[in-house]
Amino acid sequence: MSYLDELRGVVTIIKWGQKNSLWPLAFGIACCAIEMMQTGASKTDAERLGMLMQRASPRQADVMIVAGTVTKKMAPVVRRLYEQMLEPKFVVSMGACATSGGPFRDLYDVVDGVDDVIPVDVYVPGCPPRPEALVYGLMKIQELIDAYYEENQNKPVSGKLEAPSVKPSLSG
């Protein structure tokens, strides 16, 4: 019997809490960061949906929103921040640059998509995406949190929960 089974009631509360109070890492890199700020500001006000309580420290965050172009200088930093976040963690790639390099694809200092560096759960298209699009992306993360707990509910006790896998050739 899984330890999660014994704690089923607690897990339900954790799931409910995590799903409805996403704490993203305030991680603005480029243009998309301005739209991310605008998402949290008065007009869209994503916080009323319990999803944009931005944290400055990766240790407190559940979701990383990669908002902008990742360069080769920035990529090791992104990677380190990702590894500092606690499980379960999710990544939103916001905008064309973080998704594929976007308008800066195939340039000498630009990484063609942040999924070369860290695993991504939700891609939000746009250059930059409108605040509504980011809110939709975060709602998709809420669905993923549901799925995550359902998937792990009946797993045997084996230490820590499994981390998402990363491309082996690029891992640090």
């Binding site: 990529a75 090791p76 690029l170």
Partner: peptide
């Protein structure tokens, strides 16, 4: 534009990896 030398004998390619302690 990708930072590779057009004639490989003349220049160096750019770094290709982004491990945590690089750069």
């Amino acid at each position: 534009r990708r930072g590779y030398p057009i004639d490989p004998k003349l220049g160096q390619p750019p770094p290709q990896t982004w491990r945590i302690n690089e750069g």
